[in-house]
Design a protein around this nucleic acid. Structure first.
Lengths: 136, 136
DNA sequence: GTTAGTGCAAATGATTTGCAAACAG
DNA sequence: CTGTTTGCAAATCATTTGCACTAAC
């Protein structure tokens, strides 16, 4: 594994990720950086997010429209999210039952290497009240 | 709602979908059609799949690599799948508990319009035995 | 100096759209 | 005829890659 060099760009990306408690897509992170006057190349944003994801330093989820969204994360356990499809705000969920259910199905149907992806999307209280704060 | 006209292309698409008991992407369906000598424009394949999906005549799932895959379906109830990531073979799953769990979480976290997507991917017995039959 | 990191421009690849020609009722 | 459907070519759009350049160590 190679060493990581703290560059201006990397620091900026981490800062914005720390501050945002919601999920952000690469493009949204890119925009957020420019707004802060911390412009970083889009390519760099993508590459850093990828690295962070590989190291499990961010949670990665695919939004309903297909875009990947990322969020700072420390928990190293497997877990799921309830994500606001408007503002990206998210709640972490644990569900052991689901894990067990998955395993028993895999056995029953003789499938191996079964992985599961479960993400819940909805509108958080804020967003269902105001129609402002729309992501797009 | 407009009427549907039975065209050569539409019939061919439905035929292949009926015969395949596995999930297929638009591109795979397109290839399958050519192999059968029933060439249909790729655009047409996409448009028909979209229409079928709108009418709930096919199940639509997003594969791990991001491609949408489709399969003929009659059940109109909400359900999930255990899909082989190699050959597309799938098993339908029902899980009322999951539905209930979703609802209770929505209430608890005050989210509205919560939808959930759960798809399990693995390797079916056939595919985990032989390394042939790989989708890609 | 080496090696990791950056960023522009160009490539990718699935999906969508414009539009004129072909077809079903 | 009249509204659908088709299919090519071109457009989209998030993401990736080639490559020359810059910055850590």
């Amino acid at each position: 594994m190679s060493k990581r060099r703290p560059t201006r760009q990397r620091t900026a990306i981490l800062t914005v990720l720390e501050e945002a408690d919601s999920f952000l897509s690469a493009q949204e992170l890119y925009d957020a950086l420019r707004l802060k006057g911390l412009s970083v190349g889009l390519t760099t944003v993508y590459r850093n997010l990828q690295t962070l994801a590989d190291r499990n330093e961010v949670d990665v989820v695919r939004r309903e429209d297909g875009e990947w969204i990322y969020r700072r994360c420390d928990a190293d356990q497997h877990h799921h999210h309830l994500v606001c499809r408007s503002c990206g705000h998210a709640v972490e969920l644990a569900n052991d039952e689901l894990e067990l259910w998955t395993k028993s199905l895999a056995r029953k149907h003789r499938f191996s290497e079964v992985t599961h992806d479960l993400e819940l999307f909805g509108l958080c209280r804020e967003c269902s009240t105001s129609s402002a704060n729309q992501r797009r």
